[in-house]
Nucleic acid binder design. Structure first.
Length: 792
DNA sequence: GCGGATCACTTACCG
DNA sequence: ACCGGTAAGTGATCCGCG
């Protein structure tokens, strides 16, 4: 029989020394199914070196007598530019693959192995060219449900899956959950914590809450498990569920003698690659991981993510350190409202990202939960591996390569000052297009020791690396398809209102494709990449520098004054006619498309590169690189700088800017400004003991650690600076442990507000000393007496 | 032993 | 666990100084 379904998840099982691929799907008529494919065997390739003391035949016979090897077959493959004869070694299980590779390495013979480090489910998806989150039809035979498997029906797959041409989503059931834990000693630890509250919101509008009433949290956890099994979600939606929530729940359950059987095989969640928690048969999505894709969100909490995605619902916020206090005081209602708002917001967040994430998974071909968790480099690599497989290119195994820096992009020194009417001319996807145009790729690179006529290669400027003009390399093929995908998304984008959440999601999606295309260059220079070839990255950067310097020459020859430039853009005095002429000339001479992306009414440059602010025609400000857009400055300083910028760019003069700054400073000294505006947020990028200097946020993290909290790598530490003697690090306090009255206001004025404001005002000739003097003056009426004195 | 100059470390940004 | 280029603050260290 033939069935049609949407592929949700994939995993593998080894039964009686044989591999089974398990495909979890959703059918059109809302049934959950499991398809078992017993036809797939894990495999790897061996290429025998020319200098190998052992012949290919000897190696084949050695492999054939290794336990678990099914077959060895010599296949004609490609390895970079060369045609090679590779032994395809098909094994019974991943374990037998491992065994073979170990034997080969012991032989001390010159062989290269390929694909031995791909997990079976990954190899299956690549081998069969299947992308998760898409529709497929399958020839199947219904079988009885395997033991403990919780689906409507199970099948054995008889023939390879065939893709079905439809893009809609099936009726996905999603369950969002929020967990509140109580630990008298700080961060919830399995030994001392108890789960006191779990809120659950479902895609059909359901809501439930389980509150701890007894001695321990046994019942709460059991109620949650029962609810999950009863609702039977396809997707579990959580926040920080990978890093903390699910591990905590699992361990608590274990300690209580319970099993957190929330998957579809009556097993328990298990941590797999990249710290992701797998729940077999379902997709476990941690919305915290999504936040990483949105660079606009500085402090990546649920509230900010929801806000960014246009979620209307209010997300209540309680600092982590307050939760134990509330529970101890019996303020369950507060906690319950807080948790409910989070679960429901999570559901909303999921709704607004469902389309985006599934498209991403399908486009890259990675399972949904991995694609969200994985770093950009792995997404690029996955995409490349699928392409390689299609064209018979061997996928290299990951190797350890030492770090090798190289020269990157060119950045011009900006012309300091306030400029009128400035156009920014951007190259459209410069690096990808350079790679396409000059066919720069690992499989087109010609090493220096090879003899080849000059007319057959493109030679990179400065560095001299050579790349075959023909045939097209991997990067050219892959990038062309990505750029096309982006264009089609952008066409859809134009049909959607610009202020709708849908617009933002589509926009994010096209950005992901763009990021993926742009990351291909970064991938090429990443030492961890399977296809790391330094000359590829080096050549692309060199061509980039060539292109931008030629572009500057063209601009200047046309009489356009270049004010600034960075990597793939030039800033020029705007002149409609000249700019048009310029774009044409660049395209003609360099073969790359350049376009005026924005025209600023006014633009301010300090002497620093990568930092400027411009006034757009619609009256809004575009601020780049300055403190306003940085997440590690106190809000109060950012506000001050933004105000000053607005006044200056809108031409209201430096006196007005200084006046507004004075107002702001006095609002600091009078304690009118809200406490949150004084918090400085900095990321803990290493574990605490790895730091070589005692930075303020690290000292604060240490103090948190002392009182039982466990700040972990990646956490944003929020601190304020309080009155007192000594170094800054001695005056930094966790924001939850200080109040307005403790703040060292002079620090904020002299080290936050004034430097940020001076950065801008110095362009207009105001020095920090002058500003300090002016701002420090007594301003405005303070008392009745002052008031009358001023008027007289 | 002190205080400014310089270096090193750290974070976050740009494209 | 994507690249190099860049700014900027704070801590750590250097160095002259009778």
């Amino acid at each position: 029989m033939t069935i049609s379904f949407w592929l949700l998840d994939i995993n593998y099982e080894v039964r009686d020394d044989h591999l089974e691929i398990w495909l979890w799907g959703i059918t059109e008529d809302d049934k959950r199914i499991l398809l078992i494919d017993k036809s797939f065997k894990p495999y790897f390739y061996v290429v025998v070196g020319e200098d190998s003391p052992k012949t290919r035949e000897e190696i084949i016979s050695m492999l054939k007598e290794t336990k678990g090897v099914e077959s060895c077959e010599v296949k004609h493959m490609k390895r970079l530019r060369k045609e090679v004869e590779a032994i395809k070694v098909v094994c019974q299980t991943p374990l037998s693959v491992e065994r073979c590779v170990k034997r080969l390495s012991k032989m001390r013979t010159s062989v290269e192995v390929f694909e031995h480090d791909l997990r079976p489910s990954a190899q299956y998806l690549i081998d069969r060219d299947i992308g998760p989150c898409g529709w497929y039809s399958a020839e199947v035979e219904e079988i009885s449900l395997p033991e403990n498997v919780r689906v409507d029906r199970a099948y054995q797959l008889l023939q390879p899956l065939k893709p079905v041409d439809r893009v809609d989503l099936p009726p996905i059931r999603a369950l969002a959950f929020d967990v509140v834990a109580y630990d008298p000693y700080g961060s919830p630890k399995p030994e001392t914590a108890k789960i006191v509250l779990i809120s659950v919101a479902t895609s059909d509008g359901g809501f439930a809450q389980f509150v701890c009433e007894g001695e321990d949290d046994r019942e709460v956890i059991q109620q949650f498990v029962d609810y999950v099994l009863d609702f039977d979600p396809d997707i579990l939606v959580g926040f920080e569920s990978n890093r903390s929530v699910l591990p905590l729940l699992s361990e608590r359950a274990e300690r209580l003698g319970l099993k957190l059987t929330i998957d579809r095989i009556e097993g328990i969640p298990h941590t797999s690659v990249y710290g992701h928690v797998s729940v077999t048969g379902r997709i476990n999505l941690d919305m915290r991981d999504f936040a990483e894709d949105f660079i606009e969100i500085k402090v990546k909490d649920l509230r900010n993510l929801a806000k960014f995605l246009g979620v209307k619902r209010e997300v209540l916020s309680i600092p982590e350190t307050e939760i134990p206090k509330l529970w101890e005081r019996g303020e369950v209602e507060k906690l319950s409202a807080y948790s409910r708002s989070r679960a429901e917001a999570l559901m909303d967040v999921f709704r607004s990202l469902a389309e985006y994430s599934t498209q991403l998974s399908h486009l890259i071909g990675m399972p949904l939960d991995y694609v969200v968790t994985s770093a950009v480099g792995f997404r690029v690599e996955w995409f490349l591996m699928r392409h390689a497989h299609r064209v018979g290119e061997l996928i290299p195994s990951r190797a350890e390569v030492p770090y090798a820096p190289y020269k990157g992009a060119m950045v011009l020194q900006p012309k300091v000052g306030l400029h009128e009417k400035v156009a920014v001319l951007d190259f459209k996807s410069m690096y990808p297009n350079i790679m396409i145009m000059y066919n720069v790729s690992p499989d087109t690179y010609v090493p220096p020791d090879e003899d080849i006529p000059d007319e057959e290669v493109n030679i990179a400027p400065e560095v001299g690396h050579r790349f075959l003009k023909k045939p097209p390399g991997m990067y050219k093929a892959v990038l062309s398809s990505l750029l096309e995908a982006r264009d089609s998304i952008r066409k859809r984008l134009k049909k959607v209102p610009a202020d709708s959440p849908e617009y933002r999601v589509l926009d994010a999606r096209q950005r992901v494709v763009k990021v993926l295309a742009n990351a291909t260059y970064g991938y090429a220079g990443w030492v961890g990449a399977r296809w790391f070839v330094k000359p590829v990255a080096e050549a692309v950067a060199a061509w980039g520098r060539y292109v931008i310097s030629e572009t500057i020459k063209i601009a200047e020859s046309l009489g356009l004054q270049v004010i600034y430039g960075d990597t793939d853009s030039v800033f020029v005095r705007y002149d409609e006619e000249l700019v048009e002429k310029f774009c044409k000339a660049v395209e003609e001479k360099l073969g790359l498309e350049v376009r005026p992306e924005t025209v600023y009414e006014r633009l301010l440059f300090t002497e620093a590169k990568k930092r400027y602010a411009g006034l757009l025609p619609d009256g809004s400000l575009d601020i780049v690189g300055l403190e306003v857009v940085r997440g590690d400055w106190a809000e109060i300083a950012k506000k001050a700088q933004e105000r000053v910028l607005e006044v200056v760019l809108k031409g209201r003069g430096r006196e007005e800017a200084i006046k507004q700054l004075k107002e702001l400073v006095s609002s600091i000294y009078s304690l009118e400004a809200p406490y949150e505006d004084f918090i400085i947020w900095k990321t803990l990028t290493m574990s605490i003991d790895q730091y070589k200097v005692r930075a303020p946020h690290v000292e604060v993290a240490k103090s948190l650690l002392k009182s039982g909290w466990k700040p972990t790598v990646g956490d944003k530490i929020g601190y304020v600076v309080v009155k007192g003697e000594g170094k800054l690090r001695e005056k930094a306090r966790f924001f939850g442990w200080a109040s307005k009255e403790d703040l060292d206001l002079d620090y904020y004025v002299n080290h936050q507000v004034l430097p940020a404001a001076t950065r801008v005002l110095s362009v207009l000739g105001v020095s920090e000393e002058e500003l300090k003097r002016v701002v420090g003056e007594k301003e405005g009426p303070k008392t009745l007496m002052d008031f009358f004195q001023q008027r007289s």
